[in-house]
Amino acid sequence: MNKTQLIAEMAKHSELTKKDSQAALTSIQKVITKSLSEGDQVQINGFGTFALSYYPARTGRNPQTGETIEIEGANKAVFKPAKALKDRL
């Protein structure tokens, strides 16, 4: 499912128009992004938790040359589904 399909489904399952559904989705994306960039996690009961996870620096290889390279550590966004969501799947 892509963003356009998600917006259409949101509109179908709510009393919102597609335009209002798009605005709601955009707003949710901005709030989650802002919270994660500030180091906070976002927990939605019954759905799951969005959080940052730090992946430390590591040694890798350039597949074209075989040369050893150092890959920098980075924060990555992760999603952990809630038990209720896992049970429904």
Rank of each mutant, 00 (worst) to 15 (best):
F47D: 12
Q5S: 15
V78L: 01
V78W: 02
S35A: 15
K80L: 03
E72G: 10
I7K: 11
L36H: 06
F47L: 12
I32R: 02
V78N: 08
T33W: 01
N62R: 00
F47V: 07
P81F: 06
E70K: 15
E70Q: 15
A51L: 11
K86R: 15
N45W: 00
L6G: 05
K3P: 00
S27I: 02
Q29P: 06
A11D: 10
G66D: 05
E38V: 00
L52M: 14
K18T: 11
Q29D: 10
R88M: 13
K3G: 02
E70C: 04
L85E: 01
L6R: 03
K76G: 06
I71P: 02
L6N: 03
K3C: 03
S27Q: 06
E9V: 11
A8H: 13
S37G: 08
R58I: 02
T49I: 07
K12T: 11
A84L: 11
Q41V: 03
E9T: 15
Q41K: 15
K83W: 04
N62T: 04
I71Q: 04
G66T: 00
Y54G: 12
A77Q: 02
H13D: 14
G48D: 05
K34E: 14
Q41D: 12
F47Y: 13
K3D: 05
L36E: 03
Q41S: 15
K19H: 12
Q5M: 12
L25R: 03
A24P: 11
T65E: 13
G66R: 00
S53C: 05
I44C: 02
